[in-house]
Amino acid sequence: MAARMATTIVQFENVGLRYGTGAETLSDVSFSLDGGGFYFLTGPSGAGKTSLLKLLYLALRPSRGLIRLFDEDVVTLPRDRLPGFRRRIGVVFQDFRLVPHLSAFDNIALPLRVAGVEEEELATPVNEMLAWVGLSDRASARPATLSGGEQQRVAIARAVIGRPEILIADEPTGNVDPEMAARLLHLFDALNKLGTTLVVATHDIHLLSRVSSAQMMRLEAGRLSDPTGALKNPPRESRGGKRRKPRA
């Protein structure tokens, strides 16, 4: 099997984030992520995990530092070029953020519609995605009538239907039972095997051991706890044949 080349697709250098005039939520955060990797972002509540993810999915710009995404500096990127970058990123929000008046089908179809996919070309991929997350029989259900786990799967399907290069999930198992959490991780792992880079924020330490290939970043009080070796548990050779070196 040919070795998978690890290309850096995310790079943070001395990134700081401050909301208003308060103290820095993130300070001197530096790390790199390789394409095709599976990364857990851990840390206690309030450590800045969601803020770091917001920087990653371009919902915020940092107060200082450099962020490179897909080999481009996104800190100084003109605003009108951001949509193109966002379409390469899938996000599973902690609170799902499903559009309440749209059916599960329409919610999952949103990224494709945003990308300008014709209506007649939507049904096949959306139905495939519904089947993939086990919600084929709930296609026309609105979010309010779905259980928490079902909503979560709709959110995941919506995040991945556009075949994003990076999938970011913020506490994806926070609202589901252990069995569902295991299924979600299985879904993520399957996606990762298809080449999607996964960044999953969680404070559930049990998750970390369930994905053997995953690497870990730990945030505490807005700082990566070990900036020089933030990416622990480097991928095993079984995934790509070649051991990825941790970056910091």
Binding site: Y57, P83, F85, R86, R87, R97, V99, V114, G162
Partner: peptide, 16 residues
């Protein structure tokens, strides 16, 4: 606002 933010983060342009 909620719908707009979601669309925005999915890469919808201002014109869309």
């Amino acid at each position: 606002r909620g719908t707009i933010e979601v669309l925005h983060l999915m890469g919808a342009t201002d014109i869309q």
